[in-house]
Structures are given as structure tokens and as C-alpha cells.
């Protein structure tokens, strides 16, 4: 649990008492609500987005109790905590898996793993000239993908095993911050079935929670390394090909975005979709976070934008209420838009 504790402590440190601890649970779960997505960006903790999807409220609360008992955090008000110096030193001693990049990769991690594992199984059986075996991935799309890869490569069937072996070595060997056994022993090949997550964790004497985090860590590392050096990985780069989802908007926000592009105003979108204006505003904040060329000038004029950023920087706060009190004339929606659009760039 060490690594999860470090992540939670890191989140508490960054949030700095401006949200309740449950915002952290939503973040780790990868909850696709505008609030969670905004927080992830606002507090520079988006790398943890969706890295522990199966974490339950119960176990999360138990961890919080435990780290409060250890005095690594101290309660400020209900459901809000601050990091203590001993919490700080715990974090230093137990660094978080360094390659996690949830916001960027969480939506493709599973697909990448499914592709990689089936590709290795198929290649291994090719190398050993075995045609009768049970594929460990059932998803038909992945099967079609593997077939397309094999047709698309001009590497001979004798060489393919050798090639992928060297690509994997090149990718995984002697890299700081990853543990290759976490991934490699789960691979299935000819006459050799890979271990389950639990079996691998046992073998490596890790607990399941930290195992899952390390597993995501190495996958995120691989996706990044391979996508950035496709030429070095002619076979592995198949696994990241076309893997990026069209855009990262939530479904409902996507609908709002489409209406916006047809020239609809916020009020009209709300009417058309039979949703509250405030909901549509949430969607716009999400769009400001995700769509690079989306301009917020229509909703907040330039001088107001500057004022909001100025106050936020001076006061070192991301709490909307405080900013609004300082400025008076702006709306919450305007503050959120500005922070979403420029917040992170200014602070990091």
C-alpha cells in the first residue's frame, strides 16, 4: 500500500485544503465529471487520474484513517486535511511510481495491454510453428488488429520473435523507475501461460494495490517511450498505432460541443438538451481544459482574464470563493473558465 499512500499524500499536499479528500477518490477512480477533471488540472495531479479505478470508498476511508493515525496528515475541518512534516518525509522515502501519467494514458492503458499480450502470444506460437491454441484475449477487435499487424509487417515469421524480443529489451532494460517483471511474467507464449495479476504480485512479494500501480506505471512508460520513438520500435509501435481516442471529452460534453460548433448559445444548448444552464457551463469548462483552440474571450473579456489570473497568483489560491470576493464583479463561471484555460500553464 506504500505507493498508494504516497500518491494520496501527494494529492493532499497539492490540493492544500481546498477540496475534500473525496475529490482524491474520484480522481484515482478516473471519474469523468467536470469537477474531477478540473481539479486534476487545477492542482497538478492529473497524472493520477484513473490510476486506481477499482479503489472503493471503504478502503479509501480506511487508508485515510490510517495515515491520519500515523500523523502524516492533520485534520483541518471535516473531510479536509493538510500534509504534516512527517507526511512529507514519508513521501520522500517512498516515491510514487514516476512514470504514471493517468490523464494522458488512462483511456488507452487497457487497450495497449490487450494488444501487447495477444501480439506476444501470437508471435510466440508463430515462432514455434503452433497453430492450435486458445487466445487469452477474447475481444474480437484485438484479434482483427493482430491479424492486420501481421499482414502489415514485412518481417519474416522466423525473425519476428527475435525482433520483438530486442524491441522489448530496448524498451525495458535498464530504465529507472520501472520493474519489468511486473509486466513480463504476465505474458503468455507457446506452451507457457502467463501469470494473473495476483500471482505476479505474490511472486514479486508485492501487495495487490501497489502491484496495480506499478503495472500501470510500466504501461504508461511503454506507451510514452514507444509513441515518441516509433522508428526504434517497428513492431511495438503497432500497439500504439491509432490508440489515441478522438478527444477526451465526456459524452455529454461532446454533445454540447457539437451544438456549440453549430453556433448555439449556452442558454439555447440548455434548452435544446433540457439540461440546467449550470450543467452546460460545466461542459464549457471541460472544453476549455481539453480543446486547445477553444477561445474563452466570448465569455470573459481579456482584461477580466488578466485580473483573475493576477489575483489567483498573488493569493496562491485556486479557491473560487476567495477570488470572487477579491474581484466582486466576475461570475464563478468566468473564474472557472480562466483557471481551466490558463491556470496550469501559469502555475507550473
Amino acid at each position: 500500500m506504500q505507493k498508494l499512500v504516497s500518491i494520496i499524500l501527494d494529492c493532499i499536499k497539492n490540493i492544500n485544503n481546498e477540496r475534500t479528500i473525496y475529490s482524491i477518490l474520484h480522481l484515482l477512480n478516473g471519474k469523468k465529471s467536470s469537477q474531477t477533471i478540473q481539479d486534476a488540472h487545477l492542482f497538478s495531479i492529473k497524472k493520477y487520474f484513473g490510476v486506481y479505478e477499482s479503489l472503493t470508498r471503504d478502503s479509501f476511508e480506511r487508508i485515510i484513517d490510517e495515515i491520519a493515525n500515523n500523523q502524516w496528515i492533520k485534520p483541518i475541518e471535516e473531510q479536509r486535511y493538510l500534509l504534516t512534516p512527517s507526511g512529507e518525509s514519508y513521501c520522500k522515502k517512498n516515491p510514487v511510481p514516476p512514470h504514471l501519467n493517468g490523464w494522458k494514458y488512462y483511456s488507452m492503458t487497457k487497450l495497449f495491454w490487450e494488444r501487447l499480450s495477444l501480439f506476444i502470444q501470437v508471435t510466440s506460437n508463430l515462432v514455434y510453428k503452433e497453430t492450435k491454441y486458445i487466445p487469452i484475449q477474447k475481444n474480437k477487435d484485438i484479434h482483427t488488429w493482430v491479424k492486420a499487424c501481421l499482414v502489415g509487417t514485412n518481417i519474416s515469421r522466423q525473425e519476428i520473435g527475435n525482433q520483438i524480443f530486442h524491441e522489448l529489451l530496448e524498451c525495458l532494460d535498464q530504465v529507472d523507475g520501472i520493474q519489468p517483471p511486473v509486466l513480463v511474467f504476465r505474458l503468455t507464449g507457446y506452451q507457457q501461460i502467463g501469470l494473473t495479476a495476483e500471482q505476479t504480485a505474490n511472486k514479486l512479494k508485492m501487495d495487490m494495490i501497489d502491484y496495480q500501480l506499478e503495472f500501470n506505471n510500466i504501461l504508461h512508460y511503454m506507451i510514452k517511450k514507444i509513441s515518441e520513438n516509433e522508428k526504434n520500435f517497428p513492431l511495438l509501435s503497432f500497439a500504439v498505432y491509432d490508440i489515441k481516442k478522438a478527444n477526451d471529452l465526456t459524452n455529454s460534453t461532446k454533445k454540447t460541443w457539437n451544438l456549440y460548433r453549430r453556433g448555439y448559445s449556452i442558454n439555447r444548448i440548455a434548452k435544446e438538451r433540457k439540461l440546467k444552464v449550470s450543467t452546460i457551463e460545466d461542459h464549457f469548462v471541460e472544453i476549455a481544459l481539453n480543446v486547445k483552440n477553444f477561445s474563452i474571450d466570448e465569455y470573459v473579456d481579456k482584461s477580466q482574464q488578466e485580473k483573475i489570473l493576477e489575483v489567483a497568483r498573488q493569493e496562491q489560491t485556486r479557491q473560487l470563493k476567495q477570488i470572487k470576493e477579491m474581484l466582486g464583479s466576475v461570475t464563478y463561471f468566468q473564474i472557472r473558465l480562466v483557471l481551466a484555460k490558463y491556470g496550469e500553464r501559469q502555475w507550473n
Binding site: 520473435g161 527475435n162 529489451l169
Partner: peptide, 16 residues
């Protein structure tokens, strides 16, 4: 068995 041994075992058919 190291992870490299394991990879070599499934991907390289030494008889070939």
C-alpha cells in the same frame, strides 16, 4: 528465472 530469460524462452525458438 529473470524476466529476460522468460522473454527469450517464449520469443526465441532456440531449435531454429
Amino acid at each position: 528465472e529473470t524476466w529476460k530469460d522468460y522473454l527469450a524462452k517464449i520469443l526465441i525458438n532456440s531449435e531454429l
